[in-house]
Amino acid sequence: MNRLPDRLASFRVSRVALLALAFVFGCEEVDTKGWLVDRTRVLGARVEAEAEPSRASIAPGERMRVTWLVAAPGGTGRLGWAYAVCAPPLANFPEPRCAEAVLASARGSSDGELVTMELDAPPAEAAGESDALTILAAFCEGGEASLDAARFEATCAGGAAARLAAGKIRLAAAGANRNPELAPDAVRFDGAPMAPSTSRAGPCVADPAAPVVGPGTPHVFVLRFRGDERESVEGGLEDVLASHVVTAGKLKRQYSMFEPADPAPKEVSVEWTAPPGGEVPAEGRLVEVYFVLRDGRGGAAFGRRTVCVRP
């Protein structure tokens, strides 16, 4: 008979061994380019109780908001959207879809990269044994979205392809949780503080929140966590996954991690190379940098910075 450890050993250790051997024998690391906003992309969803926006755990029947961050290389325009909320199936490898009854749904449209959907959380009995709900969303550029929650498919009125995204709504039954926060001074660029930006995509304009750099030049973002913005959970502080993406240039990687055992404060640095001259017009190009924090328990936070690249 084969035992669980055999399976794990053969499946997982072997994969790691393969990675290591590939490393030894000089295979190239594959860049998935998850750090690049090369088309309209959903970058995250933040769930908050309307009465207490810092809280990410929702009580039955409570008024709540789900805000989606949707970025586009040239700035996010008007988006049609639709959503559906349902209880997730108990399964090892569940497909994102509403196999059971839809508990809430709506359609609408909005402008800009933040798309907010407001709804009332379903009653406790609707979630069954689950301590979380699944929210399915579809986004359409320039047209209304129509969502088939059972199949998790969507069509856009304009004929464009819909962007499909799923999120999780943590219910109070799973325990309280607070959204993490990205402090205004949490990001530094080449050693200098980098303030949140409100500049829009396009040519560079003078803005103290958008440092100016030359095409193709290397730079470093530093993300700093004090530690007190993270909640204590069993085993220490909660972990926080930081995702960072840019609309141009090349970022060293997509993710940084703040682990429970990490010292506080902790800084991580991410190298970024400005887009080459061929991708930068004479009037300059504003590059947007998005930071999304996730605590792995349903909490999230967004941050946005900009850099001006001029020839």
Partner: peptide, 26 residues
């Protein structure tokens, strides 16, 4: 015996779960 341990100092591209220490002894 097979032993191996590798530490991914940062999460793997496209899959943040691939991070930390991987390895084992058989």
């Amino acid at each position: 015996s097979d032993t191996f341990r590798v530490v991914f100092k940062n999460p793997d591209g496209g899959e943040p779960a691939v991070r930390g220490a991987f390895g084992g002894t058989s």
